[in-house]
Amino acid sequence: MQGIFRAVRSCQETLKAAILQHSHGRGKIFTFGGTTSSSPEQLKGLENVTVAEVLMTKGEEKTGSWLWCRTNDAVIDAVKNMAKNNIGSLVVLKPGEEHLAGIITERDYTRKIVAQGRSPIYTTVGEIMTDKDKLITVTSDTNILQAMQLMTENRIRHIPVIDGKIVGMISIVDVVRAVVNEQSGELKQMNEFIKGDYY
C-alpha cells in the first residue's frame, strides 16, 4: 500500500513540475489541490477528498443490518453475512444496543477459527472479534489520505466510519478507487491544459 501511495505522489509531483514548466511560456498558473488555477475548473485534489465523499460513491445504501452483527451471534452467521453481501468485515454491536463493541473480519475468522480448529457454530463473535479499545475508526470528515495512512500503518483493510453512531465502512479497495479516480481526473485536466484548452 505504501508503494501505491508513493507512486501516486511521485506521478503527481512529476506532472505538477511539467505543467508548471510548460505554463511559464503562456503565463498560465496551475497548482495541484485546486488552490490556484487560471482554468475554469479547479482540481479538488486528494488533500480535500473526505471519507463522506468516498461513502457516497458506494451507493445509497451504505449502512444497514448487513453491515453489523452482535457479540452473541455465532461466528458462522457473521461469516455467512459477509459472504452474502460480499464484504470482508462487520461492525460488532452489543446485544440489544447500538453501542459499538468491536469489529470482526475475514482475518479474525481465518486466524482464530480455521487456524485453531475451533467451531464457527459454537463460537460467538464476541470471542474472536477485535475489541473496540483496539479498533481504529474515522469520521466522515476525515481526509482520504489520512484514512489511507491509518490503514497502511496499522496493516488493516477495513475502517468503520463513526459520527457518534456508525455511518458506514470503508475498505482499502474504496480508498484505492478514490485515489485512482482523483488521479484520472487530474491527469485528464492536465492533458487538456498542456494541449492548450485552457486560456
Rank of each mutant, 00 (worst) to 15 (best):
Q2C: 01
G3I: 04
I4G: 00
F5S: 07
F5A: 11
R6V: 03
K16M: 06
A18G: 13
L20F: 03
Q21G: 11
S23D: 15
R26I: 07
K28T: 07
T31V: 08
G33H: 00
G33R: 06
G34L: 10
G34Q: 05
S37M: 02
P40L: 05
P40A: 07
E41F: 15
E41Y: 12
L43C: 13
G45Y: 11
G45T: 11
E47Y: 00
N48M: 07
V49I: 14
A52C: 05
A52L: 10
L55V: 00
L55M: 02
K58D: 01
K58T: 04
G59T: 02
E61T: 08
R70C: 03
N72M: 10
A74G: 05
D77C: 06
A78P: 02
V79H: 09
K80Q: 14
K80I: 11
K80M: 12
N81E: 10
A83G: 06
L90W: 00
V91L: 14
K94Y: 07
G96K: 12
E97Q: 05
H99A: 09
G102Q: 04
I104M: 15
R107Y: 13
Y109I: 10
T110G: 11
R111I: 01
R118L: 03
S119M: 11
S119Y: 12
I121Q: 09
T124V: 05
T130H: 02
T130P: 06
D133W: 08
K134I: 00
K134V: 01
T139D: 09
I144G: 05
Q146F: 01
M148A: 15
E153A: 02
H158V: 12
I159F: 15
P160W: 14
I162H: 02
K165E: 14
I166C: 07
V167I: 03
S171E: 04
I172T: 13
V173G: 13
V175M: 13
A178Q: 01
N181V: 06
Q183Y: 00
N191R: 10
E192N: 09
F193E: 11
G196Y: 10
